[in-house]
């Protein structure tokens, strides 16, 4: 791996994104707006809002970066630029790392804005460290990048790639305890939830929100980091030098 290629790729991805002002605006504005909407929907049930607000702040980057990565990788594959890159002296991990750096940066900006609105205007309280919420959100963004990279190999059109969000991510977010806490779900569903990565990401954020930063939080973070590594490794195998 070379830092030069990673940095060049991150810079190129950010240059492309910078051109797309509308997407940038949506990335920054939509999460805090949705959070504000939820705050007013749950106006009469403040504890319920309080329970899901912090996890949501940290889950937005995962969803958004998953979608953005799926689409950009699919474009690289269909436009021939991936084939060109694969014929150049470039390590696959340089390309992936370049994407990860660029999107992690965008996710950090997104989360800072969302957190400022949540903690400053919407009265969301964090008993643990607010900086840890941002750190977990950026980690989740990387999980989104890794999953998007891997799953984009199974989409042949942007239409399909977009469908992977409700197909792959949404069930996991529902199983995380967005509507019903994890421990009040049927036993069978709890087993399913325990086998999937997103409930761990959600749980980590919920624990930081309540100030419960014990060993279970460490396990949550370990599972998320492990999933990132596995997804990146699987994603790298889908970037082939030779194609049929």
């Amino acid at each position: 791996m070379t830092v030069r290629v990673t940095r060049a790729t991150a810079r190129r991805v950010l240059e492309q994104l910078r051109r797309d002002r509308r997407s940038l605006a949506l990335i920054v504005i939509v999460p805090p707006a949705l959070l504000a909407l939820l705050r007013f929907i749950l106006d009469a049930e403040r504890p319920a809002f309080q329970r899901v607000a912090v996890p949501l702040v940290g889950m937005f980057p995962l969803i958004i970066m998953f979608l953005i990565t799926s689409i950009t990788m699919l474009r690289e594959r269909t436009s021939g630029t991936l084939e060109r890159l694969m014929s150049l002296p470039l390590a696959k991990l340089d390309l992936i790392a370049g994407y990860a750096v660029a999107f992690a940066f965008v996710a950090a900006v997104q989360t800072c804005v969302t957190s400022a609105v949540a903690f400053g205007l919407l009265g969301v309280t964090v008993h643990g460290s607010a900086a840890l919420v941002v750190a977990l959100a950026v980690t989740n963004a990387l999980l989104g990048v890794a999953l998007g990279l891997f799953l984009s190999a199974f989409a042949t059109s942007e239409f399909q790639a977009v469908q992977f969000m409700p197909a792959v991510l949404l069930p996991q977010i529902l199983l995380s305890g967005l509507f019903v806490p994890h421990d009040r779900m049927p036993h069978a569903l709890r087993i399913v939830a325990d086998a999937l990565p997103l409930p761990y990401a959600f749980d980590a954020l919920a624990r930081v929100a309540t100030g419960d930063e014990g060993t279970r939080l460490h396990l949550d973070v370990a599972v998320v980091l492990g999933t990132i590594l596995v997804a990146v490794a699987l994603g790298a195998t889908t970037l082939r030098r030779r194609t049929p």
Binding site: V5, A8, T9, R11, R12, R19, D20, S79, T81
Partner: peptide, 28 residues
């Protein structure tokens, strides 16, 4: 080996010089 594919494989949302700078950085 330099390769030019039939369909232009450059990034449409970058300028000519931005495209070249990116590939030039990759190749050093």
């Amino acid at each position: 080996v330099g390769y030019m594919t039939q369909a232009p494989s450059v990034y449409g949302d970058l300028t000519v010089v931005e495209n070249l700078r990116y590939f030039a950085r990759v190749m050093d």
